[in-house]
Design a binder for these strands. Structure first.
Lengths: 136, 136
DNA sequence: GGAGTCAAGTTCTGATTTGGAACCTATTGG
DNA sequence: CCAATAGGTTCCAAATCAGAACTTGACTCC
C-alpha cells in the first residue's frame, strides 16, 4: 500500500492516469478536463513516466508534440479503479453525473465490480480475511 | 474516482485507514507505525471521521482516551486495498518485507486478488471494458 | 511527594508544495 | 500579419507539511 501511495498518493495522479486510460492523452486536453494547473500536470506526467505507468510518445515532428499512453503497468490499474468505483457507488453516492461510463466491451452493459480470491473463488471482504502484523 | 480521491487522495489517509482496518486503532500507535507527524494525523483522523470511514470511540473515561474504528464504509475498502496490493505485487515488486500479511481467514493461505464483473463472472481488464466519455 | 511515563492531542515555526496567471516557442490557417 | 494550437516553463502568493516542543490528566516508581 505504501508503495502504491508513493506513486498515486496525491489529488491528481490517479485522475490523470484514468484520463489517459480512457482516451484523453494530450497535455492540454487533460489540463482542461481536470482543471489542474499546467505546472503540476507537467510534474505528474513526468512522475508517472518515471514510475513506468505512462509512456511519452511523439505523434508529430515539427513542432514536436506528444501523447501520454498507459503502459502495461498503467493498464493494470483498470481493475483497481473499477473496484474503487464500486466502493464509491456503494458508500459515497452522489447526484453528479460521472464523466465516464465504463461498460463491458462485448455486451455494452454496466459492470458490477467485485474482488475475489482467485484461489478459492470467494469474494474478499473485511470478514473473509485474516491479518497478521509483522514484527517491526 | 474524483470522489474517492477527495477522501483518500493524499499520502497518509489510506495508510491510516489500512492500519485501523488491520488492528492499529490508537493515536500514538498509528503515529509510531507510520512516522506521520501528530498534527497531520490528527487532521486526517478528523477527515476520515467526517467522511464516515472511521468512528471515534472512547475506551476509557478519565483521562478520556479514544480509538478509531472503521465503519461499514471503511471496511468496504478492504477489497479495494487487496486489488491495489495485487497490482503493486505484479507491477512494482520490491525486496522490502510487507508490514502486514493478509490471508484467507479460513485456510490461512495467501490471497490472490482478482477483480471480476459479477454480472458476467469475467475478470475485468483494460481490454475487457468499453469506455464512453460523457459530453461536458 | 517528586520524577518519569503514557495517551491524545495542540501549538509554533520554517520549509515544501500548490494554485493562478503570464510567458515562451514553433507551426499552421486565414 | 495576426490569431490559434500545443506543450511546456517561470513567477509569486497562498496553502500545506514536517519537526519539535508543549499541554492535560492520570498512573507508577522510588
Amino acid at each position: 500500500m505504501a508503495r502504491a501511495m508513493s506513486v498515486i498518493g496525491d489529488r491528481w495522479t490517479l485522475l490523470i492516469l484514468r484520463d489517459t486510460l480512457f482516451g484523453v492523452r494530450r497535455f492540454d486536453d487533460i489540463q482542461k478536463r481536470l482543471g489542474i494547473t499546467r505546472h503540476v500536470l507537467s510534474d505528474r506526467l513526468k512522475r508517472l513516466e518515471a514510475h513506468g505507468l505512462l509512456e511519452r510518445r511523439q505523434y508529430q515532428e515539427r513542432p514536436p508534440r506528444f501523447e501520454y499512453h498507459p503502459t502495461q503497468a498503467g493498464k493494470g490499474f483498470v481493475p483497481v479503479m473499477q473496484a474503487m468505483t464500486g466502493w464509491v457507488d456503494a458508500h459515497m453516492p452522489t447526484d453528479k453525473p460521472a464523466p465516464y461510463r465504463v461498460l463491458d466491451r462485448e455486451s455494452r452493459a454496466p459492470i458490477a465490480p467485485k474482488v475475489i480470491d482467485s484461489n478459492t473463488g470467494k469474494s474478499i471482504t473485511a470478514s473473509s480475511v485474516w491479518v497478521e502484523t509483522n514484527k517491526d
